[in-house]
Amino acid sequence: MRNYFKSALFFAAIIFATQYLFIAFVPELIFAIAKHRSGKPLNTVIQAPRTDAKLRRVVLPNPDFVYNACFYDVSKNDLLITGLFSDSTQYSSLAFYGDNVQPYYVMNNLQGFKQKYSVRLSSVGRENGCIRTPTKQGVVLMRVLVTDSAQYEKAKQLQSVFKVRLLPQNN
């Protein structure tokens, strides 16, 4: 009877631990899959075409947005990100996610940021204008709202001027 109870307890503990660890590591697992499916090296810009039913890389894509993405690794270098926001009330933003796919910083054109942006992303830096990433790998997403064809042409221009460049780490 005692052995049976011990076995049941062990079985329950394994179930509890497995489901706990599974849930805890799902975000990192999803990040790894998304990074792999991007098909591009780290620290390079991915310029996505206009979102439609053919886009199967990320679930729940927003068809009203045009995206650029950059999966980054700043373990050895900082990353300089430059580009332009929309010059109107057409929403555009830059969102930074860690390797747990949680956003830790967002800037958009409606918050009073200048149209031209230049931000340094670092895992160690502390100076002004530097965004400190909580994880060495992650992803930066540029979103531009597109609600008509004229806006799409402007969004394509914003996509093309979005650049990333590696910089030496500045402790």
């Binding site: 706990y20 849930i23 805890a24 799902v26 975000p27 999803i30 990040f31 998304a34 990320v58 679930v59 729940l60 933003s93 969102a95 996610y97 747990n100 796919v101 949680q102 956003p103 967002v106 958009n108 992803v139 997403l141």
Partner: peptide, 23 residues
């Protein structure tokens, strides 16, 4: 999402790269 592992996993799965709620 802070430290709520379940909610973080749910959002990561069903709304990957969602923006924070202020946005």
């Amino acid at each position: 999402l802070g430290k709520d592992n379940l909610l973080t996993a749910q959002i990561s799965t069903f709304a990957l790269f969602a923006l924070p709620s202020e946005e």
